[in-house]
Design a binder for these strands. Structure first.
Lengths: 206, 206
DNA sequence: CAATATAGCAACCGATCGGTCGCTAATGGG
DNA sequence: CCCATTAGCGACCGATCGGTTGCTATATTG
C-alpha cells in the first residue's frame, strides 16, 4: 500500500513512529511497549515499523534519544538564557515543573525517564546503560549550576551541590508521582514551596 | 509428582510462590512478571502456580498484599514503640532508609511499591487502585505523625504536615533510585542529611 | 477402610510476542 | 528513460503469553 517514499517522507514516517512510540512507552514502559500494537496504532505493519530500527532494543534506544531531545528542548534550553548559577537553576526547576505538569501530549503516561529508570534499574543491557547515562548527565548539570550558585554566594557557603541535586531529583520524582498517581492539582505548588526552602533558606552541611 | 498435600504444606507452597513472586516482580515489575517463568523458577507447572490464585491479576494483588505486609513489619512496626509525633516520624524514616538499603533479599529489584506505582500510574484497573490505596495509606500516616509533631511543638508552628509528607516521599524515591540505578553507597547518608534539614531546621509556610 | 476433596501436573488452547522473508511498487540517479 | 534502491506489506516463524481441562495421587473425613 505504501511503497518507497521520498527521503523526506521516509524521515517523516520514522518520526511518526518515534512520536507515537514515545507516547506509548510513557504509558506502558519501554518493555511493555509492543511493536504489533504500535504498528496497529499507526496503521502500519509490524515489518514496516521494525524496518526503521531493526530490533525492539534499537527502537527503545531511539525512543529514549527522541525523549531526551524533547526534554533538553523543553526543560534545559529556555534556562540557558539565564545566567549560570542560581538564576539558571531556578529557571530549570520552573521549566521542569511545567514539563511534568503540561507535557502530557508528548508523555501522556508521565516522564518517560522516570518510568524507564524504574523499569530498567534492576537489569542490565544497553537500554539500562542509556537511561543511567541520561540521568547522570542531567544530574551533573544540576550539580554544576548549584556549584556555581555557591561560588557566587547565591547559595549559602558550605552548601553541598551534590546534595542539592539529589534533593531536587527527589522533588521532581515526587511531583511526577503526585500528578500521575493522584492527579493532585496542588502538587506543583507544593513542589515550588519545597524548592523555595531548598534554594533560598536552607543550610547545607558539608 | 506433587499431589494433594496437607493444609500446612499447601499454605507453605502458596507462601513460596508469593515470596519468589515478590522478588521477581521487584525486578521485572508486576506486569513484566510471567507465570511460566515464575513456575519454572519454583520447579512447578504453570497450572500449579496459577491454581492458587486463579488469574495473573489475582496473583499481582496477592503479591502486593504480601509486600505491603513486609513493608508494614519492617518499616512501621518498629516505629510504633516510639511516642507519636516527631520521635515516631524519625524512627519511621530511619527504618525506611534501612528498608531501601538492605531488603534486597525480599526486593532484589528495589521497593516494589515504587516500581508498581510507576508501572501502573497511567493505567486503570484493580491493581492500580490497590497501589494507589497503599501509597495513600502510608502518606496519611506520615501526615498524621507530622501533624502530631507540629501540635507538640517538635516541628515549627505553621509547618504544613502534607508538605512534610510530600517531601519525605520524594526523598525516599530519590534514595531508591540512587541505590538501584547508581548503586551509590553515600545515598543513605545524603538522605539522612536531607531529613535532618527537613525535620529539624526547616521553615514550612502554610 | 472407603469415599471425598484437592494440589499439582501434563497437555493443550488461541493469541500474541519479536523477528524474518520475499515481494511490490514507487523513486531518484545515471 | 531505465534501472538500482528501498519503504512498506502480508505471510509466516518458533517461542511464549495467560489460561483451561482432565487426570493422578494423596490427605482428610466419616
Amino acid at each position: 500500500m505504501s511503497p518507497r517514499r521520498s527521503v523526506a517522507e521516509t524521515r517523516l514516517t520514522r518520526d511518526r513512529i518515534v512520536e507515537r512510540g514515545v507516547a506509548a512507552a510513557s504509558v506502558d514502559g519501554l518493555e511493555g511497549l509492543t511493536i504489533g500494537q504500535l504498528a496497529a496504532d499507526l496503521g502500519m505493519s509490524k515489518a514496516g515499523v521494525l524496518g526503521h530500527f531493526g530490533s525492539k532494543e534499537a527502537l527503545q534506544l531511539a525512543l529514549l534519544d527522541a525523549a531526551a531531545a524533547a526534554f533538553a528542548r523543553i526543560v534545559w534550553r529556555p534556562a540557558e538564557l539565564e545566567p549560570p548559577g542560581l538564576p539558571r537553576l531556578r529557571a530549570v526547576c520552573e521549566t521542569w515543573i511545567d514539563y511534568l505538569e503540561h507535557e502530557r501530549q508528548i508523555f501522556p503516561g508521565g516522564c518517560l525517564f522516570t518510568t524507564a529508570a524504574i523499569e530498567f534499574d534492576a537489569r542490565g543491557g544497553p537500554v539500562r546503560d542509556a537511561v543511567a547515562r541520561l540521568h547522570k548527565l542531567w544530574r551533573r548539570r544540576l550539580v554544576a549550576e548549584a556549584r556555581t550558585a555557591v561560588a557566587t554566594g547565591d547559595l549559602p557557603r558550605g552548601t553541598d551541590p551534590e546534595q542539592v541535586a539529589f534533593e531536587l531529583v527527589g522533588l521532581f520524582m515526587a511531583l511526577n508521582q503526585e500528578i500521575q498517581l493522584f492527579a493532585d492539582p496542588n502538587a506543583a505548588q507544593r513542589t515550588r514551596r519545597a524548592l523555595h526552602r531548598l534554594l533560598a533558606t536552607a543550610e547545607h552541611q558539608q
